[in-house]
């Protein structure tokens, strides 16, 4: 019973961490692929386009440059919307030429400096930073992480209280044994030992249950995602925590068990000493 209580209690923040880690990894991946879209003025000349191209190539922050002429963009849009110019009553291409660049930096300052420099170049009409939503996502993830940490801390306190109380009740159950042992020369460490082992075993058992639940969650989610792949159009894969993370969960659970039982046993046995 105690294993299940500890396992489920630890599972709540750990599962939150698992989800946040997955979202963070996805956001990092997307952010690395984030682009800045540079839309050029409609009346721009080829010389100006070449100048902008060379200017972009000389920038150390830019890793990839893709130029999309307005005609190509227009054709793409039409094919995507499955419309012809006649259907929408537009005879002239409304789209501008565009450069789509990928950056090698995530620094807000560097990106701002680059966009400010680009704005100064003649022929550039508008610059859109496509990755701004990712920054918002990152901020949200950070806030969720802080929330999870607070929740985790509260749940650790709950666990300490539960384990301490269980150990306290056990010391009462073994009151006679403790008193007799003390009278015939048992040291405090001899008397504390079984209670500390109990706390450690509670922690270990609870930790194993937490790790099992997390692993089960990942497998179940991935099976489900695979089944609904045809609806979602893409496979969403939930990546499990690393071996180190699982080890940290296990060790944390054992430490919580150890400290709770040690302090609880010490306090309870101190009170029993008055019953000689």
């Amino acid at each position: 019973m105690m294993f299940i209580i500890i396992g489920i209690t630890l599972c709540l923040p750990s599962a939150g961490y698992l989800i946040v880690e997955n979202v963070r990894q996805i956001s990092t991946k997307i952010q690395h692929e984030a682009e800045i879209s540079i839309f050029l003025k409609k009346d721009i000349s080829q010389d100006q386009i070449d100048f902008i191209d060379s200017a972009l190539k000389s920038s150390p922050e830019i890793t990839k440059i893709h130029f999309e002429p307005k005609l190509v963009a227009w054709e793409k849009l039409q094919s995507k919307l499955k419309l012809s110019t006649l259907d929408i009553g537009i005879s002239e291409n409304p789209l501008p030429h565009g450069f789509f660049i990928t950056l090698n930096t995530l620094s807000k300052e560097k990106i701002n400096r680059l966009t400010e420099d680009l704005k100064l170049i003649n022929g550039i009409d508008n610059i859109v930073i496509d990755g701004s939503w990712i920054k918002k996502l990152r901020a949200i993830i950070y806030m969720i992480k802080v929330g999870l940490l607070s929740l985790g801390s509260l749940l650790v306190i709950v666990l300490i209280v539960i384990i301490s109380n269980t150990i306290r009740l056990q010391t009462l159950t073994y009151q006679n044994e403790i008193l007799v042992s003390k009278l015939i020369g048992a040291t405090n460490s001899f008397i504390h030992r079984p209670f500390i082992y109990t706390g450690l075993i509670y922690g270990l058992g609870g930790g194993v249950i937490t790790v099992s639940i997390l692993k089960g969650m990942v497998i179940a989610f991935n099976n489900l995602a695979e089944r609904y792949e045809y609806i979602l159009g893409n496979t969403i894969v939930l990546v499990g925590l690393s071996a180190t993370d699982y080890l940290i969960i296990l060790l944390s659970a054992m430490l919580i068990g150890l400290f709770s039982s040690f302090f609880s046993a010490r306090q309870s046995i101190k009170k029993l000493e008055n019953l000689y």
Binding site: L183, G185, A186, T187, N188
Partner: peptide, 8 residues
């Protein structure tokens, strides 16, 4: 802390 050893 020495009491238990004496009690023995």
């Amino acid at each position: 802390k020495d009491m238990p050893f004496l009690r023995r």
